[in-house]
Simulated scan of single mutants.
Amino acid sequence: MTVQVDNVNRTAQVDAVNKRILGMQTVVVTGVSSGIGKSIALLMVKSGWRVFGSVRKDVDAQALQAELGEAFVPLVFDVADDAAVIAASVAVRARLAGRTLDGLVNNAGIALSDPLLVQTVANFRKQIEVNLVGMFAVTRAFAPLLGADPALTGPKGRIVNMSSVGGRIGPPFLGAYAAAKHGVEGFSDSLRRELQLVGIDVVIIGPGSVATPIWDKSEAVPSAHLAGTIWERPFRAFTDYMIKDGRKVLAPERIGEVVRTALTTAKPRARYAPVPGKLLNWILPTTLPRRVVDRLIGRQLGLMKGPETANGRQQ
């Protein structure tokens, strides 16, 4: 009899949990293993949302599940794997049980720095594939769950696309990343205008430097291939600046708060730009003539071509 009672109690507890979870607002967030993505997932769970978060490794899925609890559902897929993305959307649809998804946050991304004339085609292509094509693939797979599928019940969801300052300002040595993020800006604007027809909104978040583990990784960026080239010193100056600047700026939790606002406010802006030192890092670079910005950056990093002698060599 005791065993039967215990089984009944456990069943009742599971039913209560399932009922509560089904009543939660839901969001899919890509790239939640660390940094901004993890902060978004944590904040949305604390805000009472059910979070479906993508990671690429089972070990990360297990760790996040243990840390964030029952309101977090790990999805193991790479945004560059079309079949895996579609499979994840099918799994989320089953969990939603006929209701719409409230939000999709396209956060997953990578940055591989190098001078453009030295960077391999493979590394350039990888950044476009992950940061832009992957965002398109995820959006296309999950858009029906946000309300593009009229068979689902519930309010229309929102799409939040993570861009960057690099989506408006192209820094040296991050050309592939900037190209992808410029693409994210155009993709998002076009998508928002198209989705007016179905009532799904699209919001861009374009943060400046954020204090994440990416800056620790930057110290290990290989640069031996630049030894003896014209790019060696400017690249090192750039890397040193990014590491120093990146560790003392926005906390990832701040970006999480902006994402929460984009998902929950009644009338979100089309674009949010949480940028530290906004005058120097955003307002001036986007309002000054581009040639002026070229010279300022060139002097700062040693990218200005020096005076030449008669035989063409720099003095």
Rank of each mutant, 00 (worst) to 15 (best):
M1T: 08
T2I: 14
T2Q: 10
V5L: 13
R10Y: 13
A16Q: 12
N18A: 13
N18P: 00
R20P: 00
V29Y: 07
T30A: 04
T30I: 06
S33G: 08
G37C: 04
I40A: 03
I40M: 14
A41Q: 04
L42C: 03
M44A: 01
V51R: 02
G53H: 12
G53Q: 11
S54W: 10
S54I: 04
V55N: 07
V55R: 02
K57S: 08
D58V: 14
V59G: 00
A61G: 05
A61R: 07
Q62N: 09
L64T: 05
L64I: 06
A66T: 15
L68I: 03
E70N: 03
A71W: 03
F72K: 00
V73L: 08
V79D: 03
V79L: 09
D81C: 10
A84M: 08
A87E: 14
A87H: 05
V90N: 12
A91M: 08
R93G: 11
R93F: 01
L96K: 04
L96M: 06
A108Q: 04
A108P: 08
A111G: 07
A111I: 12
L112I: 15
V118Y: 03
A122I: 01
N123W: 01
N123P: 00
K126W: 00
N131P: 13
L132I: 11
A137F: 01
A141T: 06
A141C: 13
F142Q: 10
P144G: 14
L145D: 14
L145E: 11
L146E: 09
A148L: 13
P155Q: 11
K156E: 06
R158N: 02
I159E: 02
M162C: 03
S163T: 14
S164K: 01
G167R: 01
I169V: 15
P171H: 09
P172V: 15
G175A: 13
A176T: 01
Y177M: 04
A179D: 02
G183Q: 08
G183H: 05
E185F: 05
F187I: 03
D189L: 08
S190M: 09
R193M: 07
R193I: 02
L195R: 00
L195Y: 08
Q196K: 15
V198C: 10
D201H: 11
I205N: 06
I205D: 07
G206H: 02
G208F: 06
S209E: 13
T212H: 07
K217H: 12
A220W: 00
V221Q: 06
S223M: 11
A227K: 14
R233E: 11
R233N: 07
A237Y: 03
F238L: 13
T239Y: 00
K244S: 15
K248E: 15
L250G: 01
A251S: 14
A251V: 06
R254W: 04
I255Y: 09
R260A: 14
T261N: 12
A262R: 06
A262H: 12
A266D: 13
R269M: 07
Y272P: 05
P276Q: 11
G277N: 12
L280H: 04
N281Y: 10
W282S: 06
W282H: 06
I283L: 15
T287V: 05
T287P: 00
P289N: 11
D294M: 09
L296E: 01
G298L: 10
R299Q: 11
G302D: 08
M304V: 15
M304H: 05
G306V: 12
R313F: 03
R313H: 08
